[in-house]
Design a protein around this nucleic acid. Structure first.
Length: 480
RNA sequence: CGGGGCGUGGCUCAGCCUGGUAGAGCGCCACGUUCGGGACGUGGAGGUCGGAGGUUCGAAUCCUCUCGCCCCGACCA
């Protein structure tokens, strides 16, 4: 008889999300610090797994890690017009320190383009200094009106890359390389979360960017979530911070910069992509614990035998599998099954007295919850079987999420169809409208153009709003 | 920041309307029996009722202010 500690998705999707965050022990709302959360051990472990995978990819593509100050002189933020306008409402300022009013306030970084721009202008002299390819792992703060654990918090953790290049083409290539080789690859291969690689409209682009690219994912309520962004900043910040270099012809030029980021929001994306009414579902490649072993026994004799078998079975796992043996003896096996299911551990192994006799174990897969996901297999060859199963789960989760997205994406050819489709997912439409048209649609429907997919069919059609002929298709959706 | 809801043992909540000094379930602790899908019995611990001020002989309850959370909007990774 399951206790309904998790609200079902059908009943209240938002509450379901909050229940998972709580029950899987990922985070806790820090009610004493507005809009902030405590990343609890399990949640932080998932972030560490993400960091490792992303960091590897960032370094493989030629970047190095650095760290810039948390505090940025307020005047820096003011230097790039669009940037100020975009971030001013959400920056927190430090006006006093050391018991005195500061001559110039600092802002707590909402993002680091400006302070990095200042230093880049000092560091870059020649085309030989380019490209400059840096990334930093840090926290940032954006004062938000409404927050939700992971998806939108005042303080969040992220990676922000900042690069400088000699030409627009180099900057553009960098922007796209990050989008494809780092972000989309990570999302799909590691998070098992299918994403649409796209270009942001003028309306949705980063304040101060020439162009913003993004990966957009679909959550299980059909809403879109921007999972990562990569910006070609053009020469905007180079002009604002006077970042120049001397080229081969001894001509002084402004550099072309990029910036890109992914944040702890990805944890929210992960939850809303795979989890079910039983709790969290973690893809094996990100699960801090991939396998949990639950020993079953009635008395000390059985206990001894079972634990001996468990020891034998797990002997070779260290370094191969991330696993945990749940030997708490004050809880029943049934309780443990449910608890680990709720916490999203991909594979559970049960070892009882019967298994000791028969040389078997029970193996349960989290992507198929409850008894249906459980079967009995021989102890022999178990490690290989688990490794194969983890891979199967990883692939299965991606396939399931992709199918879901496809089933909730539809081509729409009229405004009425668009309005109907955004109630259930993504609406793909031909688009030739203006920024004003887009804003009007947002006012009327609460949906926005999530992106202009980089994979375009190239066929011609009629714009869903203006009726003009165009070959450009866009994705409309309600977004997080 | 607007509109609505809510803050009472760790959690979920009752009590508030009609003021009289705090309850339930779950969890927790001890012991015993249990243990292959959320076990049970017995005993026990635990709350200045979000905070401040006010009204009153007396406030969880009434009034004012304040802080925080949740939901719906506007703004956003």
């Amino acid at each position: 008889m399951p206790k309904d500690v998790i609200t079902t998705r059908a009943k209240d999707y938002n509450q379901w999300y909050l229940d998972i965050v709580r029950e899987a022990d990922l985070a806790e709302v820090a009610e004493v610090v507005r809009g902030c959360i405590v990343f609890k051990a399990t949640g932080y472990a998932v972030w560490e797994m993400m960091q490792r995978e992303l960091d590897d990819r960032i370094k493989e593509t030629g970047h190095q890690n650095v760290y810039f100050p948390l505090l940025i002189p307020k005047s820096f933020i003011m230097k790039e017009a669009e940037h100020v306008e975009g971030f001013a409402p959400e920056v927190a300022e430090v006006t006093r320190a050391g018991g005195e009013e500061l001559a110039e306030p600092y802002v707590i970084r909402p993002t680091s383009e400006t302070i990095i721009g200042y230093f880049y202008s000092k560091w870059i002299r020649s085309y030989r200094d380019l490209p400059l390819l840096y990334n930093q792992w840090c926290n940032v703060m954006r004062w938000e009106m409404r927050t939700r654990p992971f998806l939108r918090t005042s303080e969040f953790l992220w990676s922000e890359g900042h690069t400088a290049h000699a030409t627009e083409a180099d900057a553009e290539a960098e922007t796209l390389k990050i989008l494809y080789d780092v972000y989309a690859d990570f999302a799909e291969q590691v998070m098992a979360m299918p994403v649409i690689r796209g270009l942001k409209t003028e309306n949705e682009k980063f304040p101060g960017a020439l162009r913003s690219y993004c990966i957009e994912a679909m959550m299980q309520d059909g809403r879109a979530l921007q999972a990562g962004t990569s910006h070609n900043l053009g020469q905007n910040f180079a002009h604002a911070f006077d970042i120049t270099f001397t080229d081969q012809n001894n001509t002084v030029q402004h550099v072309w910069t990029t910036s890109w980021g992914v944040s702890t929001r990805l944890i929210g994306a992960l939850i809303m992509t795979h989890s079910d009414d039983e709790g969290l579902v973690l893809p094996p490649r990100l699960a801090p614990t991939q396998v949990v072993v639950v020993p079953i026994y009635k008395n000390d004799t059985e206990r001894e035998k079972v634990l001996a078998t468990v020891a034998t079975i797990t002997a070779g796992w260290k370094g191969t599998l991330r696993f945990k043996v749940d030997n708490r003896d004050n809880l029943s096996p049934g309780f443990k099954y449910n608890e680990w299911e709720m916490k999203g551990v991909p594979v559970r192994i049960e070892v009882g007295p019967k298994d000791v006799e028969k040389g078997s174990v029970a193996i349960a897969r989290r992507d198929v919850p409850g008894r249906e996901g459980k079967s009995f297999v021989p102890q022999e060859g178990l490690t290989a079987r688990i490794l194969a199963l983890l891979e199967e789960i990883q692939q299965g989760l991606f396939a399931r999420a992709l199918r879901f997205r496809e089933e909730h994406t539809a081509d729409v050819s009229s405004y009425d169809e668009l309005k109907a489709q955004i109630e259930r997912g993504f609406a793909r439409a031909y688009w030739a409208g203006s920024t004003d048209d887009e804003k009007r649609i947002q006012d009327e429907t609460r949906a926005t153009i999530r992106c202009i997919p980089l994979d375009q069919a190239g066929t011609a059609g009629i714009c869903v709003y203006t009726g003009k002929e165009t070959t450009q298709q866009v994705i409309f959706a309600r977004a997080y």
